[in-house]
Design a protein around this nucleic acid. Structure first.
Lengths: 201, 201, 201, 201
DNA sequence: ACCGACGGGACCTCCCGTTGTT
DNA sequence: AACAACGGGAGGTCCCGTCGGT
């Protein structure tokens, strides 16, 4: 029982990487057989179908992302610090990826868009979660007078995530962290401009 | 001779949509058989392999993009007008797509990243072309005193494209043009802030 | 494990005949599907490619040849008896073939010559093995004063095999054992002339 | 009309080489398209099917062989000289082939054996023609007292051709003219032994 | 809980041959 | 007489999933 759960987890981890790197269509169960060292029967014992496995693998990737975000935000109180921590995580995906293959949300969003509705729903939820996280951070920052109340929180969050995801795509495409770093610097400049007149408080 | 060229073009057009919507791995030659009404033999008479077809289909998509950009920029002189025209094109990809399946550069970048080097190279060139276009527009705007010379052109172009591509992904993922529109509004605000200074002179 | 090995062996046996009769190019996997009763998936589970299967099938054929030669030579001491036994095996390939399709070495040599380098290497080794066998037999015969020491062993072996293989081709082409039998009689006459003056010993 | 005949001849020449090198199954019409520079329609204008073309290509190869034999025998009267000339032609097939791919009769015999009855019949006729040629030469030699009347002409011819064809296969398989040369030397020794006796008369 | 063996079919590619056009 | 364009299908390969055994 315990052993089975371990195996299941091992499959999930390998599948998470495999699907994120090769895509759902581009990765085969046999690729996973090679990666895990298990036989096909062993895999299908734990997951009913390739699609089911892909869904859970996506969830697993998101749990890795969540953990990473939680760790990065831990101990940081100031909204600017927290936003910076998030941006650093995006930068890391280009320089020293803790998940191979780029942002799983974007990868899934792009591939699933017109093809795999269930995966698309997962990606929607995940992306929403990311937006909500930023929204919470910003709202807290406004509450604490760290950020200007003029800032439209959800508009900002949307822009913030869009720019970072786009920057990451550019960096991965060109194998050059400069793109995401440029985006980050731009956002940071913008954030500084928002934060001004703290002396007023 | 004439007929063959027409058929080839027809295949290319169908393939361009098919690959952009379903991805390279996700689209099969049989899908193309259905879409074109030709038989496989007929298709392979014009293209030596699926990969070759995909490369040309990508080029065809890019030529469509180029044409669209050229048309949108035609008659506009002011840098702000030109940047706005570009942003509108991104918005259109979400509201009324002239190419099904989203931005072909991003789609290809995401799928090809770790899998199809030749497609990746194509995507790199295309993305660079997009960046260069923005850079040219901005530089012209600075020359003509429409934009502040303080603006780092290539940093801006990078941010501009990243944010728009990211925004488009969000909009497509949620089937909601609001995301890309929010990004556009943000950029527009930023551009206005840049432009203010000339009144000093 | 047991079952799979049996199936693999069954495939190999059928493939060995099929390739030897129809040739590598002329035999299709579907032919093998018909011969084995398996589906293509079942075959490819045991062999990674047609070429790999052909290589192993050739090896299997050679193992059959080896066994047959060993059985034919068993219990025979005199060089002349042993050479005769070998010639009888060639004759049998024309009259009552234990391997359908003729000599696998020659078949492979002829087809692979300018087309399939790996098969050609296999055929080279096999042919060399055959020559070495004859050389050993003759050398032993010389050692034991059954054959004249004037005989150039390797030249003889070369001639012996060439004539027999050529004779077999003629017999198979004309569906007439007379050709190989004529060659055998010629060689036997030659051998008798070599063996002369045994009374000297 | 004239032009058509030239084209037909050109196809035949290329096909003759192609089939002899790659075999009937291993050579495709598209290979021939590449080799001739014609289009498929152009080829099928002259030959109704691949099989028909192969039959004529074989005939063309045989006509080349016939011409070569005729040229080699021209001016030679003595049976031994004539047989030597024939053997030299076999040697040339290994050292400096005037037909790529080896002896077309053997190649066809081996491939067609259990697969292409019409080609097999062609190969049978061709092989018989070769045997008859040797028989004629030897018979003339006996008539003229150059060779012993004890010689069984057709048995000898059979052995002669078998050994040479076998030797050629060995040489081609090992890319080493030594095999066919060894066979030739053996036969030459045998011929000398035959010829001695006339001094008795 | 895992493996090994297999089915049935889709994949891309290339085959041979035909047709319409020049 | 030659080509260009295409059909229809077979080629080898690999896919996903199932099932019996252990």
């Amino acid at each position: 029982m315990r052993k089975g759960e371990q195996t299941r987890q091992r499959i999930l981890e390998q599948a998470a990487d495999l699907f994120n790197v090769q895509g759902y269509s581009g990765a085969s169960i046999n690729d996973l057989v090679r990666a895990t060292g298990l036989e096909k029967g062993g895999i299908y014992n734990h997951f009913g179908s390739k699609e089911q496995l892909a869904l859970e693998a996506f969830d697993y990737n998101m749990s890795r992302v969540r953990d990473r975000f939680a760790a990065a935000l831990e101990g940081r109180r100031l909204a600017l610090d927290r936003l910076t921590a998030i941006m650093v995580l995006f930068e890391e995906m280009a320089t020293d990826p803790y998940i191979a293959g780029g942002c799983p949300i974007v990868n899934t969003a792009v591939e699933a868009d017109d093809m795999y509705p269930e995966l698309k729903v997962r990606a929607q939820s995940a992306m929403d979660e990311l937006l909500q996280l930023v929204i919470r951070v910003v709202n807290k920052g406004i509450e604490r007078d760290e950020l200007s109340p003029d800032l439209d929180t959800s508009t900002f969050a949307n822009f913030f995530i869009a720019a970072l995801e786009g920057g990451l795509i550019l960096s991965r495409l060109n194998d050059d962290p400069g793109h995401i770093q440029g985006v980050i610097q731009h956002i940071q400049g913008y954030l500084v401009s928002l934060q001004k007149e703290p002396s007023n408080g």
